Amino acid sequence: MTIGAVQTLPADWRDFFALTKPRVMSLVIFTGLCGLLAAPGSIHPVIGFAAILCIAIGAGGAAALNQWWEADIDAGMKRTAARPLPSGRLQRKDARDFGIALSVASVAIMGLAVHWLAAAILALSILYYAVIYTIWLKPRTPQNIVIGGGAGAFPPLIGWVAVTGEITLTPVLLFLIIFTWTPPHFWALALFVQSDYAKVGIPMMPVVRGERSTRRQILLYSLILVPVAVAPWWIGGTGWFYGIAAAALSALFVAFAVPVALRSSTPGDGMRPEKRLFGYSVFYLFVLFAALVADRTVSGLGGTV
């Protein structure tokens, strides 16, 4: 089914809100806020609020552009068929214009209200997701999530730069944590929705390389995540509280990944290990970044590295 074959129905604000992928946006806002709060120095509350608002608006704009470009693909997938465009509640040009407006506004406000380095990184993150990942990588390579993971890794870096006005090693490591976390997080999901991707011709790892290879790589990236997550503490950018939390949470991440990796095929158990890993991966990122913020109070460090 193509979007052109669907009769457009009356839209309301909830359909435009759905274009912003609010569930994904909540994680973007949270990690961006944590980057802002963990950064050394201080920022005026109004300017800080403006920075986080711009991160949210920019993420929403990129998500709307993603759905505009992939409307026909979404129509062919059970998981996404109820979105505003494939269901016919919005026209594609409206989603495109909405996404462009949000993206441009977020970058302009960030530059004018905060500073232009944060605005430039925000613009890069939008282009990374809407163009590099959505248009170029996703339909062409099973490594789409590996390379495209950078799209969701920018918010803590932007939040940090909004406070400090500079890029240092600690916020780069925060970027790398999300970059490394994304493949096992998303491939766990892809394992139990791979038939959707196969139906619409998206070369996700389980579809192209098979389940066995995907499961091995989930474990590999989970193991890599351990030293990457602990690295901010190793370099002295955080205190002991974050270091202990990162080590414990990452070890548990590996523990959830092991049963997924050891299965050579999909038995008829509802994909429970894969779903548990996916659920824990979301919990992991929230708690890890919460520990980053708590560390400033508990350990008395400002993350100056």
Rank of each mutant, 00 (worst) to 15 (best):
I244C: 14
V282Y: 02
G88P: 02
G270W: 03
L262C: 12
G4T: 12
H185V: 06
S264M: 10
P142G: 01
K275T: 07
G165H: 06
G60F: 01
I244S: 13
Y128G: 00
F30V: 11
I224H: 08
A18K: 01
P142D: 06
H185G: 07
I135P: 01
F283W: 11
I100G: 01
A81E: 14
V207F: 05
P273F: 09
P22W: 10
I52W: 04
L19I: 03
P139K: 15
Y280N: 06
M205K: 10
F98S: 01
V298H: 05
D15I: 04
A294C: 09
P171I: 08
G270I: 01
L9D: 07
M110F: 08
L252T: 14
F186T: 14
R272I: 15
T214G: 07
A62G: 14
P267F: 09
Q194M: 15
T170Y: 00
G201D: 04
A64N: 00
G61Q: 05
L173M: 10
G99Y: 05
G111S: 11
I132Y: 05
W240N: 11
S106R: 06
S213Q: 15
F186S: 12
R23A: 02
V254Q: 09
V46I: 15
A81N: 11
P232F: 05
V6A: 13
V207W: 00
L176K: 02
G239F: 05
G236W: 13
W240F: 14
T20G: 11
L220Q: 06
F30I: 10
W116G: 07
V28D: 00
P142A: 10
I202P: 00
A153I: 02
V200K: 01
G268N: 15
F17D: 08
V161K: 02
G88I: 10
R209L: 14
P40R: 00
I145A: 10
F192Q: 07
G300V: 07
D269Q: 09
I178K: 02
L33C: 10
G58K: 02
T304M: 11
I29R: 03
R92E: 12
D72W: 04
G4P: 02
A255K: 12
W13P: 00
P40C: 03
A120P: 00
G159V: 09
A130R: 06
G99H: 06
H115Y: 10
L90Y: 05
H44Y: 12
P139L: 14
A50L: 15
R209F: 07
T170Q: 12
G300M: 11
I178G: 03
Q194A: 15
L117F: 12
P259I: 09
Y242T: 09
A75G: 12
A130M: 08
A294N: 01
R276D: 11
Y280R: 06
D97Y: 13
A261T: 00
G210W: 00
V107S: 03
A118P: 04
G148T: 10
Q67A: 09
M1A: 14
A62Y: 05
D94C: 01
S250I: 08
V207L: 03
M25V: 11
W136I: 15
T141P: 01
G149Y: 06
G152M: 02
A101P: 02
V6I: 14
R83A: 07
R216G: 04
T164I: 07
A101W: 06
R209S: 14
S250D: 06
L137S: 04
W116N: 12
K275A: 09
